[in-house]
Every structure is written in C-alpha cells, then in structure tokens.
Design a protein around this nucleic acid. Structure first.
Lengths: 341, 341
DNA sequence: CAGATGAATGTGTACGTTAACGCAGCTCAA
DNA sequence: TTGAGCTGCGTTAACGTACACATTCATCTG
C-alpha cells in the first residue's frame, strides 16, 4: 500500500504542468505526441494510479449502477436485498432497477431503457436465453463494466466479473445427501410450476444428480413433471409410498413450497427430501420437517458481492477476478437461521 | 444518499468561520459555550456527517489496524488470509499482527505491544480465557473500536462488533447429519491433540450434539479422549467395528486429519464421520472418503468481514451490527471446492 | 505585414476537511 | 507598566484531481 505517484509529481518529472499530465491521462488530446509519450512512460514507470479520494471529492457525484433482472419473482428478491444493503454500507453509488419479463418485446424495451440511462456500470442476470442475441447487440458497444449474475452469455466474455454457482456440482451434492447411508435408493426428481428463468439452472442440476447417480448401481432415478405428466400430488404420493426401497424426492427449483400436499402425504421415515433456495416458504418446510435439506446459492451474498465488485472496480480501481464462484450451501433446520446473514 | 451539510454551510448558518465549526466538531476547545451550542445544534439539525473523501484526502494516511491472534496455529491462517485479501481490495488501512501464546506472560507482553502501538482499530480473538482479566484491564481504557472474532469476553460488551459462529448450534447440526436416515446410532465423540485455544468452541459443540441426541432415545453418545483414556487409534477402531449398531464418529475440533489411522481401520460402510474445519489436510480426507462431512465456520470470510467492518466504521462512518453471526457451512466432497471462495 | 487560426501548454479554482497560524482583547503576576 | 499567557475567533495552505479558461507561439491568410 505504498503511495502512488501523483500527477503533480509526474508533471515535475516531465517538466510540464499538471494540466498537460491530466490531458494525457484522460486522453483528451491536445498534447504533442512527444510529450504524451514522455508522460505515459513516467506514469507507467511509477505505476501511477489516481488518488481515489481526491477524484471522488472532485467529481462529487454518485455512480449510477443499473440492475437488470427478471421482474416479479421471489427468487430475485434476495439478490436485490443484498445489493441494497451492501450499497447502504458503501457510498458514491446509486442503483437503478430495470426489470424485464421473459419475452422478446419486454427485453427489447428494457434494454433500450438501460442503454439510454447513461450508466456507469451494470449488473445483469442474462437468464432469458432467447433474448441473448438482443443483449449481445447492445453489450458489444458499451464501455461501462458489466457484472453477470447467476448465468453467463454464450460466446461473450467481455464482462467484468461473473458471480454465480455451479449448478451441475450442486446436483452432485444433492445426490450425495440423498443417498447418504443408504444401500439402495429410488429418487424422484419432481418438477412443478417452473419459472422460465430457472430452466437453465434446473437442467444443470438434474444432469449433475444423474451423472452422480450412475456411479452407484443401486440408485434409480425417475423424473416426474406434475404438469406434463398430468399427475396430482396425491397420486404421486401414493406411488412413492408403494415403493419398497428407501426413496428420495429431489425438487431442483425454488418452488418446493408448492409441493406441500405431496410432502405431507408421503412416508417421511422412508423418504428423504431435498429442495432448493431458502425462500421463506421453503424455510417453513424445513422448520416443520417436511424437507430435510435445501441447497442454497446465497443470493443475498451474490447481490452484495455484485455491488462491492463494482465499487472495487469503479471507485477503488482494483483488479477484479473474472469468476467469483459462490459456494453451494447445504441448509438444514439447524443451521438455517445463521445462513440468512 | 442525499448529501450531508458541509462545515462551510454550517459556518454560514451559524455566522462564524469554518475554523470555529471545525473546533466544535472535533472538540478541540477554544470556543465559547454559546457558539459551541449553536453550532452543535445546527449540525445535529441538518445531521452533519463529515465528507469521507475530503477527510481522507486531507489526512492522507493509513489507519493502523492491529490483529491479535494466537500464534502458530493452522486454524488462524485462514482468518489471516481473509484479512489480507480483503485489505488488498480496500485502501487506507494497514495491518499489524500481534501474536500471542496461550500463557499469561505472553499475553501480557503482547498486550503491551498492542497498546503502545497507537492503533486506530483492533481485531481480537479472545480465546485464551485465563488471559481475559488481563485483557479487560487494558480494553476498558481504549478509545479505538475493537472487533471480536471467534469468541466474546464474558462481562464485556463495549466492542464494535462480534464475528463468529454458534458452536452449540453447529453441534446440533452435526447430530442431525450423523443420524440422518438411521433408526439407531452410537456416536463416538473423539478428542485428540486439542489446542488450548479451541477448548471453548469444542465444549459448546459437544453440548449441542448431546442436547440434540437426547431427543432421540435410540442415539447413544460416548466420549473418547485418546490421550486421557490412554487408548490407541487401532484399539478404538476395533471397538467401533465390534458395534452391531450403525456408528458415527464426531471429531469436534480441527485436527481431524490426525485420526487417519482410526478412520482407515473402521468399517466405513457402517460408520459416518464428521469433523470440523476445512484445512487442507482435512480436505484431503474428504477427497479420499475418509470423512463424510466437515462443518466449517468460513474463517476466510470471518477475516475479510472483520476488515470490512472496520473499514465501514472507521472510514465510511457507518453503523455496524453488534453481532455478525457466521453461517455454519456443511462441506462434503462435492461442494468443497466452491467454499474456499 | 497585420491579423486570424489553432495547436500545445500553463493557470486558476473548486471539491470539503483539517490544523497550523495569527490576531485581537483580556487578565494577572512580576 | 509591561509582557506573558489565555480566550475566542478568523484566515489560509494544503491534500490530488479535474476542468474551464488563459496564454504562448508558430503558421497561415488576405
């Protein structure tokens, strides 16, 4: 943390005024090539970086950070809360939310808003895959840093940082927890009311679980989509209860709480249940022992990390890791209250 | 984030110069009571808070943060790394380490160093209980903020913030994981080479596990202290293997890795194993399936949180939560690589 | 050759806070 | 009576950056 050289010192070394140095540093032109080179060289040599406080004092304005998320989903509330509370702990930044629906028109509109807003940075959850082409068009022309959250965009890696967890791996973790201590197992992967924006994550999780289950011949896996298979929760409960083997239910998305009927009617002594995401409805189900574990990607922390990432980049001028993987947390009734931070 | 009033504005409102306002704010005296009251009143009314950037620019010095930890323990390495990497992401602070041994003389010496060092803040792990009286003496006279990490000090609550996890609760979590899916269970709590500074934590964990096990009559718990009971790992392995019931081994401290002999000789199909702390030796044991789970209190995050807490308090002048509980993380082979951050 | 043009560079000021310094006017002991 | 010291206050120079504006000087135009 040695002090960096100042523009004043550079000016003296280069034999010019600080105005000239300033023009070079912000390349605002109007400086001869010669002088410019000399200054650039000196700055590099002493690895100049601008004094954060002086700059902030001088500019005396908030950076405007855009947040572009799907609207109307409990899933993103925690991310938002994380961002807001982190912001509250920092300074010099303000948030502007741009919510989009999962369709092309909405995406187009929202994008227009985002890129007219004259932002200094953007936090983006590119979970609407069909809209990514639209996104890419715009993203390629931007100059401000972009933090991707939850998902990446195929074929584009000009982002500042990615924050998210590895869903494939969390599927494997799920498998491990479900089969722990058992000699044979039948696992039902149950889908119900899946939100579009979660589809990518769900697929990866299921693939992870399946891959892991193959390593162990006594573990049979079956997928049940309540809507598509036209089966009620009661009917499924009956099927599960008829199984002679130990069974487990894996719900690879956040709407675990919608399966209350199913879970109250199965034989919980014989069936282990694992869901995703610690939203409050799901927390209640842990509490009442309807669910054994939830896997959790710490959305509050993801949100706060997204903000602090931009703070560190834009305000403190720090290097940022391209990938910031989030841990997959295993939540049981007993550690849940400590996880919410 | 509306802008606060500036001293210049206060000065104008109070009809005095900024110098006077400054003296009042930093109560450096030499101001009449009348004037002082008037200024205080105006400042409060407009809830003045000093501009962080201007102050930092003016002072232009690093805050000196002391870190007081037990020396020579792998357990604290992660905390330190967390602090250092967080510091690297911030600015205006520098660390000074003061390590102590677990005896009164060392504690006395270290304390002397700490309080002669003219610090602006302190991060303290008060894990040497016998030394707490010594600590208290000094702490009561200090003016700088203190962040407690890992443990609190009985009868003293004048700290800025406490960062740590609930060991009693993590014992309960352990019990839950160990008994999951089983109809009866014999759990061996195994102690081996306990470091003094972990004793408090260990007791709480064991209490948590025992309390939880009482809720379930088929769960019998036995404690084995390898040193005190003069029993070898091989002998214990034999005893465990003779059990007809399913068994589990709970190691409530970080030196799980020292029990390799025991763990290689037990029947792993019948015995579930749970340890603490994701130090690299333990990680290897997860990897090689000698251990099923590790409970983890995220020391890297504790370290970085301690630093950012002081940053937010000292530099950004933010309110700080008195308690910052850390989640108890459950680590298995499959999510471990994502936890190390 | 006066005057305009424009490129290259210097100057001045502001951002808000801090703290050293200075200046009256006063008290009080030598 | 003098001057040392105190009280209450104002003034001012930094801190480093950013940017509007001013200055210089060479070149070009009519």
């Amino acid at each position: 943390m040695e002090k960096s050289i100042t523009i004043k010192e550079i000016a003296k070394l280069a034999g010019v005024s600080i105005g000239t140095v300033d023009r070079v540093i912000h390349n605002r032109g109007r400086v001869s090539q010669e002088t410019s080179d000399r200054i650039t060289h000196i700055a590099a040599e002493h690895n100049y970086s601008s004094n954060v406080n002086a700059r902030k004092l001088r500019l005396n304005r908030n950076l405007r950070i855009g947040v572009m998320l799907p609207s109307n989903s409990a899933f993103w509330e925690n991310h938002k809360n994380g961002m807001i509370s982190e912001l509250d702990q920092l300074d010099s930044m303000q948030l502007e939310f741009f919510m989009f629906e999962m369709n092309l028109d909405s995406m187009r509109n929202t994008l227009q808003g985002v890129f007219e807003a004259n932002l200094d940075g953007l936090i983006l959850a590119p979970v609407f895959e069909e809209g990514n082409a639209l996104l890419l068009e715009k993203l390629e022309t931007t100059s401000f840093p972009i933090v991707l959250i939850d998902s990446k965009i195929k074929g584009w890696n000009d982002y500042l940082s990615f924050i998210g967890s590895d869903n494939y791996q969390s599927g494997k973790t799920a498998c491990h927890l479900l089969s722990l201590g058992l000699e044979e197992l039948k696992t039902y992967i149950v889908y119900h009311s899946i939100a579009d924006e979660q589809k990518g994550a769900i697929n990866a999780r299921v693939e992870g679980l399946k891959a892991m289950s193959l390593q162990w011949p006594n573990h049979q896996v079956e997928e049940v989509n309540l809507e598509r298979n036209k089966i009620t929760q009661e009917e499924l409960a009956d099927i599960i209860n008829e199984q002679s083997r130990p069974t487990s239910i894996y719900i690879p998305h956040s709407s675990t709480f919608l399966l209350e009927k199913l879970l109250t009617q199965i034989d919980r002594d014989k069936t282990r249940v694992l869901g995703h995401d610690l939203i409050s409805e799901n927390a209640k189900m842990l509490e009442s022992n309807l669910v054994d574990f939830l896997l959790y990607q710490a959305p509050i922390r993801q949100g706060s990390l997204a903000i602090s990432t931009l703070y560190r980049n834009l305000i403190l001028n720090k290097e940022i890791a391209t990938d910031q993987p989030m841990p997959i947390e295993i939540i049981s009734k007993h550690n849940m209250e400590f996880v919410k931070r």
